[in-house]
């Protein structure tokens, strides 16, 4: 166990925000979960008691009849905003006095940094470079992430859970988002920051960064495993595998979605449904490709003269 190495990584000034972000995320997940649970309990109670549902104020916070529904912004909101700016300012002041922004040697194109890391918020994309060629990891995936985020409001047809925390009414939507944000995006950043060392090799936390370490990995391509040698054969085989993934995967999602989300399934138009399928499967393809690579040393699935997947 190399504590010094671990400390060096965790205390690198640019990594401190990530170290701080983890407890923050856990705290806010807890805060959201607490409120979701309270609301879900209330919903459960009201569902079974229609008489109460008619008269209840419908919030999990105690409410007394006769209370004003609205309060003045001045002072009730402005004082909170003022307090928030003060607290943020104090945090920033203390942080800026105690921790210095990094400044390395002057830029030198002839001296490669090893590891050369992107800023921490893009490390998820850099980690993706291990599993995909740059045109996918650096261009297609970011574009799809942005488009995927943008279409969320237009493909989520569930009218429940608008304006309050809940889990039970939106299991699929929230589950998918948590998967994409926490499991994929945040944990890939954590891998990129804390695990990847020189040569972008895998070093467990506490393992010494050995700049001379070489790993002999024999990476195979999927067509090789099936003994396909000709270029045309590889291209066709890959197209079939990728196509089959989307068709069979889509079918699996269909079987699941229609059973467990019958209402959304009914409400969704063909366009909404196919977009949902495409983005979901593309998102799931990332951990699958990671598994193929880390577990079976498979580099490409689909090889063509123009691009490889």
């Amino acid at each position: 166990m190399d504590w010094k190495q671990l400390w060096e990584i965790c205390s690198a000034p640019d990594n401190v925000p990530i170290v701080g972000m983890i407890p923050l995320l856990i705290f806010y997940c807890y805060l959201a979960w607490k409120q979701a649970k309270a609301n879900d309990d209330l919903i459960g109670e009201l569902e079974t008691n229609p008489a109460l549902a008619k008269t209840h104020h419908r919030k999990s916070w105690p409410f007394r009849p006769g209370w004003q529904k609205e309060v003045h912004v001045w002072p009730f909101l402005l004082r909170i905003e003022f307090l928030a700016t003060m607290i943020v300012t104090i945090i920033l002041m203390v942080w800026s006095i105690t921790l210095y922004a990094p400044l390395e040697e002057p830029a030198n194109p002839n001296l490669t940094m090893n590891p050369a890391k992107a800023p921490w918020y893009f490390l998820g994309l850099q980690e993706m470079l291990v599993y995909f060629d740059p045109w996918i990891a650096g261009v297609v995936m970011p574009t799809l992430i942005i488009i995927g985020l943008m279409i969320i409001p237009y493909i989520d047809t569930n009218p429940l859970g608008s304006g309050y925390y809940t889990w039970k009414q939106r299991k699929f939507a929230i589950g998918t988002f948590l998967f994409g944000f926490i499991i994929l995006w945040v944990s890939m950043i954590i891998i990129g920051t804390f695990i990847r060392g020189p040569g972008w090799q895998w070093f467990w936390p506490g393992q010494t960064w050995d700049h001379n370490r070489l790993i002999y990995e024999v990476n195979r391509d999927l067509p090789d495993l099936f003994g396909i040698a000709s270029n045309a054969g590889k291209a066709i085989f890959g197209a079939i595998v990728v196509g089959a993934y989307y068709v069979l995967g889509g079918f699996g999602v269909h079987a699941f979605f229609r059973r467990y989300n019958p209402k959304d399934y009914k409400r969704m138009s063909l366009l909404q449904y196919s977009l949902m399928q495409f983005f979901l499967l593309t998102m799931v393809a990332l951990p699958l490709k990671m598994l193929l690579r880390l577990g079976f040393n498979i580099k490409y699935v689909w090889i063509t003269p123009w691009f490889n997947v």
Binding site: E105, Q126, A137, V140, W306
Partner: peptide, 28 residues
Amino acid sequence: DDQLGFWAVTVGTNMARATPMLGHEGPF
């Protein structure tokens, strides 16, 4: 203009080479 920024931006913009159709190392 230090090593940190220089290499981060080098890594970042190298991906743009691989843009499909618009980058010189990208598909097509």
